[in-house]
């Protein structure tokens, strides 16, 4: 626990946030505790805090995104940073510049923090080696999406009061999901029992090595669950490539009210968005404010990203002691 750390020990001694894997439980709790405070601040009429005033935040998104980019932009602006967005379509990667040259170019702009999304696993860590400021991974290939796992955990903790001992079922396209991988690492680190539920074609090999239990049938996977996290299934993977069709997928792996009722009495439903209604989740489940925390996840996303931006830039400036 962060509060039991000896005086003078940095509660989050990392220059970047590239992955959940490798973080200590007390470091994850520290990020969540900080994010909790920003969540409260975000509900005040005046949301602004100027601690990042004068700092430059670059959001470099080499893969398209709407909600994550918006969330990071709002988080940076609420902290007073000068936020600049670099979008894939307009980047010179399309003109043949190597990723490392792009990284050096970004670095020469002397940013104070860079948020990166890239379609290749490991790409964000590669860039982080070449720049002189904190880097936040906003999703790299199928590898990790750490702030998504943090916002999921924060949402669960606020709704359920804890993470340890909960049974969490993560369902859908696990094979291609960085959200699933980050969540596996985070939730198992904090003591949850994690299940991976997917058809065999969308389940990575040896998934047990990540400390989770695989299920190929939805009903068995959901049994006794406290939390169900649905993953988005890309439509191009449902035309017979990985599953035969949308309707067959929904029949076997869609989250319906009946499945939810059978799972348990008080199951919390999460989805990282954007949702495919009628493909992986039924509309009435998604819209049930007692069961679904999908909107709250979006809110917690801003809080988590504010916490990460604040902590990493304070560490960089050597001001980590002052909260």
């Amino acid at each position: 626990m962060a509060e039991t750390l000896p005086a003078g020990v940095h509660p989050f001694p990392h220059p970047h946030l590239l992955a959940i894997e490798g973080l200590q439980p007390h470091e994850i709790r520290y990020l969540l505790d900080e994010a909790d405070r920003w969540a409260e601040a975000g509900r005040q009429p005046r949301k602004h805090d100027d601690r990042l005033a004068g700092l430059t935040q670059i959001n470099a998104f080499f893969e398209s995104s709407t909600r994550t980019l918006l969330s990071f932009e709002i988080a940076g602006k609420r902290l007073g940073a000068d936020v600049v967005n670099l979008m894939a379509g307009s980047s010179s990667l399309k003109k043949g510049e190597t990723l490392l040259d792009t990284a050096l170019t970004l670095n020469a702009m002397r940013p104070d923090v860079i948020v990166i999304r890239h379609e290749s696993s490991g790409a964000v860590a590669l860039i982080a080696e070449k720049v002189g400021c904190p880097v936040l991974n906003a999703g790299d290939g199928r590898h990790e999406h750490p702030t998504q796992a943090l916002l999921d955990a924060l949402t669960i903790r606020r709704r359920k009061g804890r993470i340890a001992g909960l049974r969490v079922a993560i369902c859908g396209d696990i094979l291609h999901s960085r959200v699933a991988r980050s969540n596996f690492h985070l939730l198992t680190a904090l003591g949850a029992e994690v299940r991976a539920v997917a058809p065999p074609t969308l389940m990575p090999a040896n998934i047990e090595c990540l400390g989770v239990t695989p299920f190929h049938r939805m009903d068995a996977g959901l049994e006794g669950a406290d939390v169900v996290m649905m993953l988005r299934l890309q439509l191009e993977r449902m035309d017979g490539a990985y599953v035969p069709s949308t309707r067959e997928y929904f029949r076997h792996f869609g989250l319906t009210r009946a499945r939810l009722e059978a799972a348990g009495p008080d199951v919390l439903v999460l989805h990282p968005g954007p949702m495919n209604r009628g493909v992986e989740i039924a509309s009435d489940v998604a819209d049930d404010i007692h069961r679904s925390a999908i909107s709250e996840q979006v809110e917690m996303g801003v809080a988590v990203r504010m916490a990460c931006l604040d902590i990493l830039t304070r560490t960089r400036r050597g001001e980590w002691g002052a909260a």
């Binding site: 894997e21 696993s121 490991g122 790299d140 290939g141 199928r142 590898h143 990790e144 960085r178 991988r181 990575p204 090999a205 040896n206 998934i207 090595c209 990540l210």
Partner: peptide, 15 residues
């Protein structure tokens, strides 16, 4: 190659 390492790193893998 499909296995623990490819799964952990999120790399497209073949058995």
């Amino acid at each position: 190659t499909e296995g623990d390492y490819a799964t952990r790193l999120g790399l497209a893998a073949a058995p």
